[in-house]
């Protein structure tokens, strides 16, 4: 069960780095050789070999993806989505400040909701431009929240920061998943 989950996760990572045309061929090759090794070596399950193959494949595949220019476009889409989020977030904060009293419960609740809601929209937009860009956006959000925590210091509560550190990347990924779901429905 755990081994199956490990190999599935490894395949998922490989799938992120491979172009659609190569995905089946590479993962199929790994599955075939893994089965062959398990049958001939009398080992019950050579999962470590499988994981070793996947982890050693990451660097060459990353370099190949960079050569194809995929990563540059994906990164660009994520940065563009992040820029859009920041514009909407600033506009929302100005509106919020004008409409609600800063000490009110409604203001605090809205402050908690604006970031994740925008991040979900950003994840959706990023994935719309480029599949996989929502994942990069999630990573960018983690870096930006960590940077914010480092510079804000003790002026912001740790719970407030931790909330954004966890929720922002998750909502970005959720936005990306929503876009993928919609795309699959359109294809069908």
């Amino acid at each position: 069960m755990r081994r199956a989950l490990l190999t599935r996760s490894a395949n998922w990572i490989l799938g992120r780095l491979l172009p659609e045309a190569q995905k089946d061929a590479v993962i199929g090759d790994l599955i075939e050789e893994h089965a062959l090794r398990t049958a001939t070596s009398h080992a019950p399950n050579d999962s470590w070999w499988y994981l070793g193959q996947v982890s050693r494949s990451l660097l060459p595949l990353l370099l190949a993806a960079a050569r194809r220019g995929q990563w540059l476009t994906t990164f660009g889409a994520a940065v563009a989505a992040y820029g859009l989020i920041k514009i909407i977030e600033s506009a929302s904060e100005v509106t919020l400040f004008a409409v609600l009293a800063p000490q009110s419960l409604a203001y605090v609740l809205a402050a908690y909701l604006i970031g994740p809601a925008n991040m979900m929209l950003g994840g959706y937009v990023a994935a719309r431009i480029r599949p996989g860009a929502a994942t990069v956006l999630a990573i960018i959000s983690i870096i930006m929240v960590l940077q914010w925590m480092a510079t804000a210091g003790s002026t912001v509560s740790i719970w407030f920061s931790a909330f954004f550190l966890v929720v922002c990347p998750l909502t970005a990924l959720a936005g990306g998943m929503l876009e993928r779901k919609q795309r699959n429905i359109r294809v069908q």
Partner: peptide, 12 residues
């Protein structure tokens, strides 16, 4: 070799 290295070379 890793399968990734083989495919990256074949792609090139």
């Amino acid at each position: 070799l890793s399968i990734g290295a083989v495919y990256a070379t074949l792609e090139r």
